[in-house]
Simulated assay, not measured.
Amino acid sequence: MRLLDRAAALFARHGFDHTSIKDVADAVGLSKAGLLHHYPTKDALFTAAAELGRGKAHEVAGQAMRLPAGPERDRAAIELMTDLALEHPGLISMAAGVITEMGSDSTHPLLVPDSDELSMFAVFDVDPRDVDSERLVRVIGALSALAVLSLAANHVDRKSVWRRHIVATCLAALGHPSP
């Protein structure tokens, strides 16, 4: 899991074309041959990282969707996503690319968002194609804030201290008052 999280971070930071197997191997303390033993190609490594991220997102979505749409589900989703983001910053970096790549002509097929990758919008009961929706803007704002703040919290080693502030900021972006 740590290996795939690190790989996801490197792919998010440098892009698929500019991330080498050696870069990932160096980042996780493996030899290139050792990494290739687990993931025979860069595509396989990228796909594994993307699938892990999608799997974690689906777990979060499944838990949050047990609640009816509304403020309680929004809070549950934000709290679950914040915990995921603080634990796996590489996966969140890669997932944030889905939002920034919406509607782009990205060359790698896994970077082009599809309905599966955008399922997180369903958690917040918003259609990502409704570009005139204030709710869509708020959801994108909350998800973007969550990504940036969780990455910053990891960078300054303040995950537990910042968690409640990240949740409050994201809920405020969604239009919910702080508790």
Rank of each mutant, 00 (worst) to 15 (best):
M1D: 00
L4Q: 06
D5I: 02
A7G: 06
A8L: 06
A9L: 12
L10W: 05
F11T: 12
F16M: 13
V24G: 02
V24F: 06
A25T: 06
D26H: 13
G29H: 07
K32C: 05
L36F: 04
L36T: 12
Y39T: 03
A44S: 09
A44V: 12
L45K: 02
F46G: 01
A49N: 05
A50F: 10
A50P: 01
E51M: 05
L52V: 00
L52E: 04
G53C: 01
R54T: 05
H58F: 08
H58A: 13
E59V: 14
E59M: 09
V60A: 10
M65H: 03
M65K: 13
R66P: 06
R66E: 15
L67P: 04
P68K: 00
P68G: 12
P68E: 12
G70P: 03
P71I: 05
P71Y: 03
P71F: 03
R73G: 01
D74H: 12
D74W: 11
R75Y: 06
A76H: 08
A77V: 03
L80Y: 05
L80G: 01
D83I: 13
L86C: 05
L91W: 00
I92P: 01
I92N: 02
M94I: 00
A96Q: 12
G97P: 07
I99D: 01
T100I: 08
E101R: 15
D105K: 14
T107P: 12
T107R: 15
H108C: 08
V112Q: 13
V112L: 12
S115M: 14
D116W: 08
L118T: 10
S119F: 09
M120G: 08
M120K: 02
F124C: 09
R129Y: 09
D132Y: 13
S133Q: 07
R135E: 11
V137G: 10
I140T: 12
I140M: 15
I140C: 14
G141Q: 08
A142M: 10
L143C: 13
S144T: 14
S144C: 11
L146A: 09
L146Y: 06
A147P: 11
L149K: 14
A152C: 03
A153H: 04
D157N: 14
D157P: 05
K159Q: 15
R164I: 09
I166G: 07
V167Y: 02
A168G: 02
L171G: 01
A172D: 04
A173E: 11
L174S: 00
L174D: 03
H176Y: 03
P177M: 03
P179E: 09
